[in-house]
């Protein structure tokens, strides 16, 4: 039973409780840093690192922190890891650091990180919390990269800075800027909601037919 549970903790962040498409939290970096696939991946990986590391540490110390001061303590833990990521990127990937700008320190206030700390890591063991963090991080990353890839393709006709669409393609600048980000994310959210509605209807129909066949 334990094993299936762990798999579920990992998978729920990728689809069932997807932070971006289902819970709609932490949208600011999704909109702001998805100008290209490369930026999107960099932001996704940085955020995943912060979610996983703070989930691990918080689940390790969860029994030592008094309940009244738990939120400030979590904020300090998260801010510490964000500072580490910030210094690391500044030292080794200065070009990415320049592009992501203030959105690196802003990982602190990404609702996903504190949300997972409060809702999951403060109540569960280290291994489960790690998987939960990885799942949520990958969920966030795939949403961000999908949006990044679509925007890069429409705005410049490229994916990963390689020309994909031929010379005849007229780039649509708008998708590289603010309105494009909102509109494409809106369609992606609607698409995911559509699939979810369909799946749920199918399940309900199945239940009804099972019941009638049993009767």
């Amino acid at each position: 039973m334990a094993k299936t549970n762990y798999v579920k903790e990992f998978l729920k962040g990728l689809w069932e409780e997807h932070p971006t498409f289902v819970m709609l939290i932490g949208l600011c970096p999704v909109l702001a840093t998805s100008t290209s696939l490369k930026n999107a991946l960099a932001m996704g990986i940085s955020t995943t690192a912060v979610i996983v590391l703070s989930n691990i540490l918080i689940s390790l110390v969860r029994n030592f922190i008094p309940d009244e001061v738990r939120l400030p303590s979590y904020i300090i833990i998260v801010a510490t890891f964000v500072t580490l990521v910030d210094l690391f990127l500044n030292a080794y990937f200065p070009s990415i650091y320049q592009v992501l700008g203030i959105f690196i320190p802003l990982i602190v206030v990404n609702c996903i990180v504190l949300g997972r700390a409060e809702a999951f890591a403060s109540k569960n063991g280290v291994f489960a919390s790690t998987l939960d963090g990885l799942g949520m991080g990958f969920g966030f990353t795939w949403a961000l990269s999908t949006l990044g890839a679509i925007r890069e393709l429409l705005a410049r006709g490229e994916i990963f800075e390689i020309k994909v669409l031929g010379e005849g393609y007229v780039p649509m600048q708008m998708f590289g800027q603010a309105p494009g980000a909102f509109i494409i994310l809106g369609f992606l959210v609607a698409g995911v909601t559509y699939i979810k509605i369909r799946v749920q209807r199918k399940r309900e129909l199945q239940k009804i037919s099972e019941r009638s066949s049993a009767a």
């Binding site: 603010a178 909102f182 809106g186």
Partner: peptide, 23 residues
């Protein structure tokens, strides 16, 4: 409107159109 667009989907698209106006 189509069910899937209700709530967040249409809100984001509206924000996109507003962003265009603000541009």
């Amino acid at each position: 409107m189509p069910e899937a667009f209700r709530g967040a989907g249409v809100a984001l698209i509206t924000a996109g159109i507003m962003a265009m106006a603000f541009m």
